[in-house]
């Protein structure tokens, strides 16, 4: 029981790591990025390429992947998302969904549909014991990364000038513009950060399990559930949401594995029904 909860918290950290970019984009730009999961998968493929191309271990690949992902995110915001967000409620959904289709199938043409995984070496296969529990280093690292990423995002938004501009823009882009905030670069940065965290999460997922070009869909669903359960647009809420998902999954699995994922989806639906959610 306690083991299940501890493992659930660790698993939940991974969900939160994927979800925080989604949460950020929604909180600031009101953008539900359907392609978020696919961008995470792209991160994993980039790390795979770095490993195959330069023999770089995953940690070093980060140095390459993260700035690239940031750039891609900013570029997507300036070219696609910005225009889509002006086009009403349907346009962003359709545009990001279209983007998701493009990414998936580009990955299929480039890397085939065969499942891949990242080789994290001995570290990725090792575990350690705490109070009779065997925990995986990799999962623990994933959880710690989630907390660090969410914490730094929180500090960034709460304590810095950039954060103030982001919050002002999120509250009212027009007012922010009038008071001298340059909205476009702010949004571009936020989209960049969002995609960079997605890529980071994708690399962790690639280390923990296998991925293929179509993995993005389920990743998005779990991330979205974490965001909704944790309260839309709240970063710490997203972490809580991820943990709730992870723990639910582990506890239900104690009883029967078959119901674990189903329970998570049903919980999400329950939250939707019980709680008023307004965009």
């Amino acid at each position: 029981m306690i083991a299940a909860i501890v493992q659930g918290v660790l698993v939940g950290g991974t969900y939160a790591l994927v979800a925080c970019g989604l949460s950020l984009a929604f909180g600031v730009m009101r953008l539900v990025n359907i392609a978020h999961g696919d961008l995470a998968v792209c991160g994993a493929y980039l790390a795979l390429m770095a490993a195959a191309g330069f023999g770089a271990p995953p940690v070093l690949a980060l140095v390459l992947v993260l700035p690239l992902a940031f750039g891609v995110g900013a570029l997507l915001q300036l070219t696609l998302f910005e225009r889509a967000l002006r086009g009403g409620e349907l346009a962003p959904v359709l545009v990001t969904f279209g983007l998701s289709v493009v990414i998936q199938n580009l990955l299929v043409t480039g890397a085939s549909a065969n499942p891949r995984s990242l080789d994290g070496g001995a570290f990725a296969l090792a575990g350690f014991e705490v109070g009779g529990l065997t925990l995986s280093w990799l999962r623990t690292a994933g959880f710690a990364t989630a907390v660090v990423v969410l914490g730094s995002l929180h500090l960034l938004l709460a304590r810095t000038g950039f954060g103030r501009r982001v919050r002002a823009t999120a509250d009212d882009p027009e007012a922010a513009r009038l008071s001298g905030v340059r909205v476009r670069p702010v949004f571009a940065c936020v989209a960049g950060i969002s995609v960079a965290t997605a890529a980071l999460a994708g690399m962790f997922l690639g280390l923990m399990s296998t991925f293929d070009p179509y993995s993005g869909g389920l990743i998005l669903i779990f991330a979205f559930e974490a965001v909704v359960i944790g309260g839309l647009g709240s970063l710490w809420g997203t972490l809580a949401g991820g943990i709730v998902l992870g723990v639910t999954q582990q506890l239900v699995a104690l009883w029967d594995v078959r119901f674990a994922v189903l329970a998570v989806h049903v919980l999400f639906f329950g939250v939707l029904v019980v709680r008023p959610v307004r965009a």
């Binding site: 359907i34 989806h265 959610v277």
Partner: peptide, 17 residues
Amino acid sequence: RLSGGQFAVATWVLAEI
């Protein structure tokens, strides 16, 4: 109860259920 992107993803989750 939802609309826009949230409705979209919620219906997707429903299909998974």
